[in-house]
Write a protein that binds this DNA or RNA. Structure first.
Length: 280
DNA sequence: AGTGACGCCTGGGAGC
DNA sequence: TGCTCCCAGGCGTCAC
């Protein structure tokens, strides 16, 4: 469930917790967590030891730490990944897969991941973005996000609006939760055809997405359980602000109709049957 | 090239 | 009580 607000909360924690520090050693406990590092866990650890972390960056739901070697430690939290900055003697988490210790012997960085959809890898380049992430679009909170280009690209697509919002090559950072919240605010059904939306309608959708993401960042993200937490292990508070997602049967906060749940792409979509009628 | 389906994972909860 | 089944869903890969 980590989407932009959750990943941004983690990025801030990494900026505060590990930027400027030098990595001493790396332990990979679960090879699956570094499966995208094709040269293997040994190479992964070797490229990190002795390197200094320059900063913490994010593109969409990807994070990376540029290193003084010119490489970048890159990560994706997937469904259940956590990057924790914790005292070196704190108890080992059940699904702890990667540990990074620092030369100052202070707090260490731990990658914990129950479902192992997430992972870490070291890639060349980090400025402005590692080539690995070149296909990921900017997010709506990025000052360089091009609103009009987005509007044109969406209207050229022949797909449903929710699919477009979830397409990280069109706009990044939005997942199932914030897509549903954006559509609820825009009062549009996710299956509305993108090529039949007017330019102002797409602009309004983008505006709602930006507002939802901004409010969620301010709340420290959304947490349903202990799976999503900040680098300090703290849960986000946005869950209480959700209007549609996860609220099947509860009254729509706008019109009172019971929120409906529909199956979509092997997952669930939540919407108001009255405010967001299905197209045609 | 754009579009959409599929598989990867584990723990918690429902149902029997 | 213990078993089975279902659900959560981002993204790389692949087929059309």
């Amino acid at each position: 469930m980590p989407e932009l607000p959750e990943v941004e909360t983690v990025r801030l924690g990494l900026e505060r917790g590990v930027a400027g520090r030098t990595i001493a050693s790396v332990d990979v406990g679960h090879p699956r967590s570094v499966r995208r590092h094709t040269a293997g866990a040994g190479d992964f650890a070797g490229r990190l030891a002795g390197r200094t972390v320059l900063s913490a960056q994010r593109r969409g739901k990807y994070l990376w730490l540029p290193l003084d070697s010119g490489d970048a430690l890159t990560g994706h939290l997937g469904m259940s990944g956590q990057l924790l900055v914790v005292p070196a003697d704190s108890p080992l988490q059940k699904h702890l897969h990667v540990r990074l210790r620092f030369t100052d012997e202070g707090r260490e960085l731990r990658f914990v991941d129950q479902r192992t959809f997430g992972g870490l890898l070291v890639v060349p380049g980090g400025e402005p973005v590692p080539p690995l992430l070149a296909h990921i679009a900017r997010d709506p909170l990025d000052p360089d996000f091009d609103d009009e280009q987005f509007v044109e690209r969406v209207r050229r697509r022949r797909t449903g609006l929710k699919r477009a919002l979830l397409d990280q090559t069109l706009v990044s950072g939005i997942g199932n939760i914030y897509a549903d919240e954006t559509l609820w605010r825009a009062q549009l059904h996710g299956e509305r055809a993108t090529d039949r939306l007017s330019r102002p309608a797409v602009r309004r959708v983008l505006g709602h997405a930006r507002e939802v993401l901004l409010e969620a960042v301010a709340a420290g993200g959304t947490s349903f359980d202990a799976l999503y937490v900040s680098t300090d292990g703290v849960s986000g508070l946005f869950e209480r602000s959700l209007n549609a997602y996860g609220r099947e049967g509860e009254p729509c906060p706008r019109c009172g109709a019971p929120v409906r749940r529909e199956s979509f792409m092997n997952r669930s979509s939540f919407s108001c049957p009255r405010c967001q009628p299905r197209p045609r």
